[in-house]
Amino acid sequence: MITDKDINKLADLARLGLSDVEKQKLQKDVGSILAYVDQIKSAPVEIDTKGRVGSVKNVMREDEVLNETGSNTEALLSEAPKREGQYLKVKKILGSSDSFEI
């Protein structure tokens, strides 16, 4: 069962600032979905953490720049909510509190 504490922790980890009402609803929904997916616990399967997933393999390429430098800069930066010149602008990080409160 998912507790209040779990939901608070998960919301913090996922960077979702949720209201108490939303947290309660999520607790119920996620609880019932987990109860459903819990049936895999009885499945006849060995967990092989050393094994690979399917036919996944590394695909390598040369580490080289394929675009002309600066050809996409303006288009990309113009989508940013806040910018200063050629930089993305964010609030000060150093010295701010570690609290998760909004």
């Binding site: 600032g17 909510p81 806040k82 000060k92 509190s97 909004i102």
Partner: peptide, 15 residues
């Protein structure tokens, strides 16, 4: 930060 909606909080975490 990079694109899309920004709703400002009191610090970056709040954002």
């Amino acid at each position: 930060v990079k694109y899309g909606l920004l709703k400002e909080g009191k610090d970056l975490m709040g954002d």
